[in-house]
Amino acid sequence: MICHHTSRRRAGHAAEADHRLRENGLPWLAVRPRAYSPRSIFVLSSESEIAARLRAFCTT
């Protein structure tokens, strides 16, 4: 897990996360802890179980 403070990219938080995910080409997932938070949490994992649990946690 990596906690990252966004850089105020012009297109917004989602564009910043997409940029970070694409530039590495690794199986990352990005989570924004709260609305209006400048933080992103990136989880590096190739396991589908981890991805499924993280998605379930974020949608509850």
Rank of each mutant, 00 (worst) to 15 (best):
M1A: 14
M1T: 10
I2H: 05
I2R: 09
H4F: 11
T6S: 11
S7M: 10
S7A: 13
R8Y: 12
R10C: 08
G12Y: 01
G12S: 05
H13C: 07
A14Y: 04
A14S: 05
A15D: 09
E16S: 10
A17T: 00
A17L: 04
H19F: 11
H19V: 06
L21C: 11
R22Q: 09
E23C: 08
N24L: 12
G25V: 07
G25Y: 00
L26D: 07
P27F: 00
P27R: 01
W28I: 03
W28P: 00
W28L: 13
L29I: 14
L29V: 10
A30C: 10
A30T: 00
R32V: 09
R34W: 01
R34N: 09
A35V: 11
A35C: 09
Y36L: 13
Y36Q: 13
S37F: 11
S37Y: 07
S37W: 05
P38A: 11
P38D: 06
P38K: 07
P38N: 13
I41W: 00
I41G: 03
I41L: 14
F42T: 02
F42A: 08
V43G: 03
L44K: 01
S45M: 03
S45C: 06
S48N: 07
S48M: 10
S48D: 11
I50E: 06
I50Y: 02
I50M: 10
A51E: 06
L54N: 03
R55H: 07
R55S: 07
A56C: 15
F57Y: 14
F57W: 14
F57M: 14
C58W: 04
T60I: 15
